[in-house]
Write a protein that binds this DNA or RNA. Structure first.
Lengths: 142, 142
DNA sequence: TCACTTTACTTGCATTTTGCAAGTAAATTT
DNA sequence: AAATTTACTTGCAAAATGCAAGTAAAGTGA
């Protein structure tokens, strides 16, 4: 994993310095929408990420404070990743990306989610973000 | 420019098949927010894209219907790129990316834009999209 | 307790993508 | 007619990605 240095002062460019690749945001998606939290679960996603890339990206996400990494409560040989607040704040980005994709791709997008977003986008985003915050908290207090 | 084949049915993954790199969305940003429309203008952006990458990405954007390419009205040696409706529909994505970036990066984000988005996000997005549609139309009818 | 499995990686190497510098070519300007 | 602008292409080096195999700690079943 290489250190990231901003290419410019532009906020779009800055975000892409972290997430301008084919994989980082898919890991975020899995945490946000697919309730995944371990290396093995990320590895099993449909897109078939390579193991070295997954390890590299998880490192990056942790190093830059998008996720936390902790030993699992049940198994010491397992790590659990959770989104930080900084990561949770990317939910709107991922959802807009999903909405665009669903418009042009015969989609595996969840019908309930797309309906909820259509009815009340802002509210749906907040609900998802709060669920992710609670997940982190409940994990913390076990 | 390589042909793109979807890695999965996921709409997030599908969008990233096109825009999961460090440059494509910056060209879109330049068209959406910085009123740029020519090769030379894209080349002059702060991030300093390489000429071969720019050519490749413009090709991709045109091939997949995100932009149109036409000879400029004033100069036959110049091409003008404009966003298609499919491209304009990515405005929400770029703006969410910008909002996140502005939160974490001492930012070159336009104050007026960030204020307008804070006050009325949906309305601001629609206004920007309509401006882009009009730009295309006025160009068409000259 | 000892082999087997699960989980999370690392390593080595081939392929692909990106980056840089230089070159090309048509149109326009001087 | 020469210089400049505009939009690229080409060649090669460097970096990122992909694939297959290997490692190592922890947990499981006999």
């Amino acid at each position: 994993m290489k250190e990231i240095e901003p290419r410019s002062t532009c906020p779009v460019s800055y975000t892409l310095d972290f997430f301008g690749d084919k994989w980082s945001l898919l890991i975020m998606r899995d945490m946000m929408l697919n309730n995944k939290s371990t290396y093995g679960e990320f590895l099993n996603s449909d897109e078939k990420i390579a193991t070295n890339i997954l390890a590299d990206r998880l490192n990056m996400l942790e190093a830059y404070g998008f996720v936390t990494k902790k030993v699992a409560a049940d198994k010491k040989s397992k790590f659990v990743y959770h989104l930080t607040e900084k990561g949770i704040e990317l939910v709107p980005v991922v959802l807009e990306i999903a909405l665009w994709g669903a418009k042009y791709h015969p989609s595996g997008m969840d019908r309930e989610l797309s309906d909820a977003l259509e009815t009340d986008k802002a509210g749906t985003i907040l609900r998802i973000q709060n669920l992710l915050r609670n997940k982190f908290l409940s994990f913390e207090t076990i």
